[in-house]
Amino acid sequence: MLNGKVAIITGASRGIGAATAKLFAQYGAKVVVNYANNMGAAEEVVEFIRENGGQSIAVQADVRNQEDMNSLVNQTISHFGKVDILVNNAAIHFAMKPFFDMEWDEFRPKIEEEVKAAFVSTKSVLPIMKEQKYGKLVFISSGLSHQPMHGFIAHGTAKAAINSFVRYLAQELGPYNITANTISPGMVETDATKHTPAEEKEKAAMFTPLGRIANPEDIARAALFFASDQSAFMTGTYVPVSGGMEMNS
Rank of each mutant, 00 (worst) to 15 (best):
G4S: 05
K5N: 15
V6T: 06
S13F: 00
G15Q: 02
G17D: 00
A19D: 01
A25V: 01
G28V: 05
V31H: 02
V32D: 02
V32I: 10
N37H: 03
M39K: 00
G40S: 06
A42Q: 02
E44N: 05
V45P: 00
E51D: 11
I57M: 02
V59Y: 00
A61N: 01
F80A: 09
D84M: 07
N88R: 04
N89Q: 09
A91I: 10
F100H: 11
D101K: 12
W104R: 10
D105K: 10
E113W: 08
V115Q: 07
V120I: 06
I128F: 14
K130R: 11
Q132D: 04
K133C: 13
L137H: 06
I140C: 02
Q147I: 09
H150K: 09
F152C: 10
H155D: 06
G156S: 09
A160F: 07
I162D: 01
N163H: 04
S164W: 06
F165N: 04
E172N: 06
E172V: 03
P175D: 12
T182A: 11
T182P: 01
S184R: 08
P185K: 06
M187E: 08
M187F: 15
K194V: 12
T196I: 11
P197I: 04
P197T: 05
E199W: 15
A205D: 03
M206T: 15
G211I: 02
A214S: 06
D218V: 02
I219H: 05
R221C: 13
D229I: 09
A232R: 13
F233K: 10
V239E: 10
V239L: 10
P240L: 05
S242M: 09
G243E: 00
G244W: 07
E246T: 14
S249T: 14
